[in-house]
Design a protein around this nucleic acid. Structure first.
Length: 345
RNA sequence: AGGCGCCUAGCUCAAUUUGGCAGAGCACUGGUCUCCAAAACCAGGGGUUGUGGGUUCGAGUCCCGCGGCGCCUGCCA
């Protein structure tokens, strides 16, 4: 992973942390699928471990406030939040190495969101790609939360004085907006927040089993890595392959075959597998069975860990509560500083 | 707050001027078929018609209340 620019050393403003902190939020979309892991979670784990080794803090937040802009069923939100927490831990986030908590357990962030709202021009928000997209996908429910979504995102990052934000390229506009909001605030009230920097992670766009759209729970084209092996086999066998390879003897085109593309992430021998497809030495069924088995094996420990975690909600709640408590002093210190700077106290 | 319009399958919409067995396309599931998938063909599941009352032998359809969405005119901190 690469950092887009070296964070400024925090020498000028004494309120900035000595070491950069990393922050990332993830929506409580329920049990994670392959796209979640390859696209984000793997990088969270890597950054967490790097932080533990190099001495900077990593903060991961399940953003249930943000989810409320689209999810309106309380039971579903609660369930998906727990499922996401269990998934993250099962896939390698370690509450001893990182701070893991639920966004709404630190409600101070909503106060900061309001305060940042007052330095944010509406035009910036209306131009946000995801806002425009949501107006299309849920036209019956264009609530104000959708518009102010990036402001809450900015508040999330800066309330913990985080300066490193691991994101995929698709999130670049949101982070750029966060940077502008921070600049606007610092310009008006004095240097208070570190400007967040993108940590561009190598995040492949993982296509779903239909081979066309991005893997997504709402589309229903996921590979559920934490599900039972039979479910995974069935999902992979149903994947769309190279639509021009009709007969077993036809040569395949690994570049356009989503099954072949996924092999890149599960073994060093994908070139060899691709060669088998090109020369029709192997068939799609062979390649699918191999992929299924590799995914099943690779996620076997995570699957077992998930099963244990989700069966013990008391323990999960305790982990999340502890995370929220550990991060509390940072949030409270920031808010005290911000209120003072803005003239509220 | 008032006025007008809308709400039917996961989605887009039907359902005769005047109440009479809730349907189609897409999507989904299964089958046939070429290694699988796709495509094609065949079959199937899927609905408390937003919600609660009322009129009627019978209500998606008519009447009243409530909720949601959109547009318009206002009011208020």
């Amino acid at each position: 992973m690469t950092i887009d620019a070296a964070p400024k050393p925090a020498t000028r403003a004494s309120s900035l942390p000595a070491q950069p902190r990393a922050f990332s939020g993830i929506q409580p979309s329920g049990v994670t699928h392959l796209g979640n892991d390859l696209g984000a979670i793997r990088n969270y784990v890597a950054l967490q471990n790097r932080g533990a080794a190099e001495g900077f803090e990593t903060i991961y937040c399940i953003v249930d406030y943000h989810a409320l802009t689209s999810v309106h069923d309380p039971d579903r939100l609660r369930r998906q939040t727990l499922e996401m927490a269990a998934s993250l831990i099962a896939l390698g986030l370690d509450p001893d190495k990182c701070m893991l908590f639920v966004q709404s357990h630190r409600p101070e962030v909503t106060e900061l969101c309001w305060l940042l709202n007052t330095v944010t021009p509406v035009g910036w928000l209306q131009r946000t790609p995801t806002y425009k997209e949501k107006r299309q996908t849920q036209p019956e429910d264009v609530n104000h939360g959708l518009l102010t979504y990036p402001v809450l995102q900015a508040a999330d990052i800066v309330i913990y004085k985080a300066s490193l934000v691991p994101i995929g390229k698709d999130q670049a506009p949101h982070l750029e907006l966060s940077r502008e909001i921070v600049r606007a605030f610092n310009a008006r009230y004095g240097e208070t927040f570190p400007e967040p920097h993108a940590v561009y992670t190598e995040a492949p766009v993982v296509l779903g089993t239909d081979g066309v759209r991005k893997m997504s729970k709402s589309v229903g084209n996921t590979i559920d890595i934490l599900a039972e092996p039979d479910v995974i086999r069935k999902q992979i066998m149903s994947m769309v392959t190279d639509t021009q390879r009709i007969l077993r003897s036809d040569p395949g085109r690994p570049e356009v075959c989503n099954v072949c593309q996924m092999h890149r992430h599960f073994g060093d021998d994908y070139e060899e597998i691709w060669d088998g497809e090109r020369t029709a030495r192997t068939g799609c069924v062979d390649t699918k069975k191999l992929l299924a088995q590799r995914i099943i094996d690779h996620y076997a420990p995570a699957r077992e860990a998930y099963r244990e975690l989700i069966a013990d909600p008391v323990r999960l709640h305790r982990i999340l509560d502890e995370g929220a408590e550990r991060i509390r002093p940072i949030a409270e210190a920031t808010m005290a500083e911000v209120r003072e700077r803005m003239g509220l106290r």
